Amino acid sequence: MERNGRQAWPPELSEPLREVDRLRRGGRYTSALALARKLADAHPEQVRVLVEVGLTLGVWGGQPAEALPWFDRVLALAPGHAATRYYRSLALARLGRHAEAVEGFTQVEAAGFRKALVVHMKRAESLGALGRWVEAEADWTAALAEDPGNSWLLQQRAQARTRVGRTEAAEQDLTTALEAQVDEAVDPELLHARGVLRLGRGDVAGARADFDAGLAAFRVGDPPVLLDALRQGLRDARQP
Rank of each mutant, 00 (worst) to 15 (best):
R132K: 13
R219A: 14
E189R: 01
E45M: 02
A129H: 01
R219P: 08
D222K: 15
R219Q: 14
F113M: 14
L35G: 05
L178H: 08
L90F: 00
L197G: 15
A76Q: 02
L144H: 00
R3N: 12
R238A: 06
A111C: 11
H120K: 03
K122I: 14
A129F: 07
K38E: 13
D210S: 12
A111Q: 07
A177D: 03
L75G: 03
G200N: 12
A8V: 15
P240N: 14
A169W: 02
V118P: 00
T141L: 09
D187E: 12
A138Y: 10
A65L: 13
F71T: 11
E189G: 07
V118Q: 08
A207Y: 08
D222T: 05
A129C: 07
D173K: 01
A101T: 11
A217W: 03
L33C: 15
D72N: 04
H98K: 15
E45G: 07
E179R: 13
G27C: 08
L127V: 05
F71A: 10
W70T: 01
L199F: 03
T175H: 04
G62H: 00
K38V: 02
T30P: 04
L17Q: 11
G112H: 00
G128A: 10
G54E: 10
E135C: 08
G58C: 04
P79Y: 04
A213P: 02
D147I: 11
Y29H: 15
Q7A: 13
R37L: 14
L199H: 03
A217M: 04
A160W: 00
P16H: 07
S126P: 09
V74C: 06
G165W: 09
L199D: 09
A82S: 06
W152D: 13
A213M: 13
D222Q: 10
A67I: 02
Q156W: 06
G104C: 10
R37T: 05
D72K: 00
L227M: 01
Q63A: 10
R25M: 01
R219G: 10
G54Q: 09
E19H: 15
A40M: 15
R238F: 00
A193V: 06
V204E: 05
R201G: 05
Q156H: 07
A180L: 01
R198N: 11
G233M: 07
G195I: 09
R161I: 01
L230H: 00
R37Y: 07
M121P: 02
Q239H: 12
A217V: 00
T106I: 13
A36N: 11
V47M: 11
L127C: 02
A42R: 07
A237V: 02
A34Q: 07
G27N: 02
L50S: 05
L92P: 12
M1V: 09
A91E: 09
A34V: 11
M121A: 10
L197A: 11
Q239D: 10
L17W: 12
F211Q: 14
V53A: 06
P44S: 14
T141W: 03
V204I: 13
R166W: 03
G80L: 05
D236G: 00
A67G: 06
A205G: 14
V47K: 02
E100N: 04
G128L: 08
A237H: 03
G112C: 00
L190I: 07
S89N: 09
V102I: 11
R88E: 14
L227Q: 06
T162K: 07
